[in-house]
């Protein structure tokens, strides 16, 4: 019964990723990112014990960086830049589905070669995680709007975090803080670049 619950969580993680990939409304994508990030909390207790200090520290980091700070930063930018709500993808649904099927085949191939997984983790869950990473990569390829690209990056990072959790059973807490901070700073850098770009759209240089 326990395993079924986690299967559902992993499936939801992937589905929120797919929805974010095909959704064209910016605000909705940010909401989906926040939901996906929140779902990351559950696999922590699949790998670590509920009484383990490390698992609660990771949950705190997920809540702080991924569920609150990252989406809030993105929402602040949407408001600050007065962005248009609608975006359009670079390619249509058919291309997206074709690329997804390619990734699905590769995920099956890789997972087939996996030797040792934690007892609680099922192979199907690893396939979902690989697809989550792949959906993030597809975000880079298929989207044009810069905030959607960053959303793809967040999904990619979420997938890698989950894979690290499954395969490595987590990293030392100091490094995990660094990794969480890094992914948030990528968003901040992107926003800073965008804001600076608007500020000096017609700048000139001497050198």
């Amino acid at each position: 019964m326990n395993v079924d619950f986690y299967d559902l969580v992993y499936l939801l993680l992937l589905l929120t990723g797919i929805l974010a990939l095909i959704e064209n409304r910016i605000r909705r994508v940010v909401d989906l990112i926040a939901i996906q990030s929140f779902l990351l909390i559950f696999p922590c207790f699949q790998v670590h014990s509920i009484t383990d200090y490390h698992s609660w520290a990771v949950v705190f980091l997920i809540l702080l960086f991924k569920v609150f700070l990252t989406p809030l930063t993105m929402i602040w930018t949407i408001k600050n830049q007065r962005m248009s709500e609608n975006t359009s993808p670079r390619f249509g649904f058919l291309t997206t589905m074709f690329l997804f099927l390619i990734g699905f085949s590769f995920a099956l191939l890789i997972v087939d070669n996996l030797r040792k997984l934690p007892e609680a983790v099922d192979k199907i869950e690893v396939i979902y995680v690989f697809l989550m990473i792949y959906v993030g990569v597809m975000g880079f390829i298929l989207r044009k709007h810069w905030l959607m690209l960053m959303a793809g990056f967040v999904m990619f990072e979420n997938g890698i975090f989950l894979l690290t959790l499954i395969l490595q059973e987590g990293l030392p807490i100091g490094i995990e803080i660094g990794a969480f901070m890094d992914s948030l700073l990528v968003i901040v850098s992107a926003i800073a670049l965008q804001i600076r770009g608007v500020q000096f759209k017609h700048g000139v240089s001497e050198e």
């Binding site: 850098s189 670049l193 600076r196 000096f200 017609h202 700048g203 000139v204 240089s205």
Partner: peptide
Amino acid sequence: ILISLSKTERSI
């Protein structure tokens, strides 16, 4: 961020 110190559209 440092690249954008050029303050040109291209640098962004």
